[in-house]
Simulated assay, not measured.
Amino acid sequence: MRLSGNVATRIGAWAIAVSALAMGGSAWADPVVLNVVDVAGNLALTQKAIEAFRDKYPNLVSQVTFTNAPAPQLPGKIKAMQGAGRSDIDLVLTGTDALAAGIEQNLWMPLLPDRAKDFPGVLDKYAPNPRKMQDLAQGQGLEVSFMAAGPLIEYNPAHVSDPPKTTDQLLAWCKAHPDKLIYARPANSGAGRAFLMGLPYLLGDKDPHDPIHGWDKTWAYLKQLDSCIPYYPGGTSAVMKELGEGSRDMTLTVTGWDINPRALGVVPAEFKVQAFDNQTWVNDAHFMVIPKGVAPEKLPVLIKLMNFLLEPQQQAMTYDDGYFYPGPAVKDVPLSAAPQHSQDVLKKYGRPEYDQLIASHPNVVPLDAKAMVAAFHKWDQDIGAQKTK
């Protein structure tokens, strides 16, 4: 088959790029512009490291543009671009939500085992719980940060003297205090997602991995809870704003969304959290994925960047201000390796009990891609259809 001149030129550029990287970048001809889109708030953890990569390799990268976007809208946008033969987005930083939707729609470039030689020993780098989360990517992305998430109950202790410890107590409190409990739409909220996927374990549902046929108790419970919830914000930030301003007294949260808003002053520092008596931790993670159709000359730079972000020094930066606690996905990156600012924030606003709670209760991975998409669709249709803003 004869290649067109344009295709042959692009393949030639890619070959030159790969050769240049193999030689440490010295032969790189034209630095590229990388367009990074974040749909998970991950740039709070990784933007400084990405900028450090740009500064370290000016012969590879001339500029990095950063864009934030809502997770539910991104897969459709990428699908439309790919259908038009465009590749405006080079790297996506995503939670399990858009990761799952992209896997379902075949949007992401296969990385493992297809390109295992480009990521030597990467799976052995992950700590045990993050390693389990990496499997959710189905070889189409690499985990870059990890959170032992929740669900947890966060509350204003001035208005809640006896916080719920069980799902029955939570429902009773909500009915006794209508409009004082909210949580965000799970399809665009890590905290809402942890609550949705944690309920089957808390309620003893038939199959926590099957939201359509195994969550009868969960869907019934959510409909009862809906009776005392005023509406569902489109993201966790809006929830924390209302909690901090005092219009709500309680929400469902995760470790990072407890620590970080208090560190930022959005939520008062004295607000508290309560774990469930029969707590099961539904973990969370952020992933790096490359949309199919990315320019060939950019691919080797992206591969080098992804490996760079998994180095211990860059992983230590993911402690950040507690936004995605603890943060690092790879092994042997203690808090003492983090920047001093991160150490100070976590000392002041972290919860000493978290490490013990995480170690003493089961940790599970979220739903796989197909099941997660089905759960989001059913929640949107049956629970949040009339009350999501």
Rank of each mutant, 00 (worst) to 15 (best):
F376H: 00
K117F: 12
G41I: 03
K79G: 06
S145H: 12
Y183M: 07
A69N: 09
Y323V: 08
T255K: 04
K331N: 14
V266H: 00
G139D: 01
I153M: 12
K175L: 05
A238R: 05
T251H: 11
D179T: 05
L264D: 02
M109L: 15
C228L: 06
P200G: 04
D258M: 08
G327S: 02
K292T: 04
M306V: 12
P128V: 01
W215A: 04
P211R: 09
P130L: 00
Q73V: 12
D355T: 14
K48H: 10
L299A: 10
L111A: 00
V144D: 13
G24T: 06
K125N: 14
A374Y: 06
N35W: 08
M133T: 06
A337D: 07
F271W: 02
N278V: 10
G141Q: 10
A385G: 01
V32H: 03
K304S: 14
V364R: 15
A69P: 03
V301W: 08
L60Y: 09
K48C: 04
A22M: 08
Q314K: 05
P186H: 03
L367I: 06
V32W: 05
L202I: 04
S62D: 07
L43E: 01
M1F: 15
A116L: 10
A116M: 06
A194Y: 10
A176Q: 14
K206V: 04
N307D: 12
N363P: 00
G12P: 13
A369Y: 09
E104S: 02
L93T: 01
Q386L: 03
Y126G: 03
V273A: 00
C174S: 11
A220P: 11
D97I: 02
Q105F: 03
V282T: 07
S62M: 07
V18G: 09
Y349L: 07
E270K: 03
I182Q: 11
I16S: 13
N68V: 08
K175G: 05
L123N: 11
Q343A: 09
Y57C: 04
D114F: 00
Y155F: 15
G322H: 13
F324V: 03
L181K: 00
H177Q: 11
D88A: 13
L309Y: 11
I383P: 09
D258C: 05
K292F: 01
Q386I: 05
P151N: 05
A375V: 02
Y349A: 05
D382N: 11
I11L: 15
V373E: 13
H361F: 14
D205Y: 09
H209Q: 04
Q315E: 15
G265D: 01
S342E: 02
R54L: 12
D210H: 06
P230G: 05
D88C: 03
A80R: 10
E51Q: 06
L310M: 15
I229L: 07
P208E: 04
N188V: 14
K223M: 04
G12K: 09
I78A: 06
I303V: 11
M306A: 11
D30C: 04
P75L: 15
K206A: 11
M306L: 02
L243M: 03
L335A: 08
G139E: 01
P261M: 03
L170Y: 14
P72H: 07
L302M: 12
A158Q: 11
T218F: 13
D168V: 10
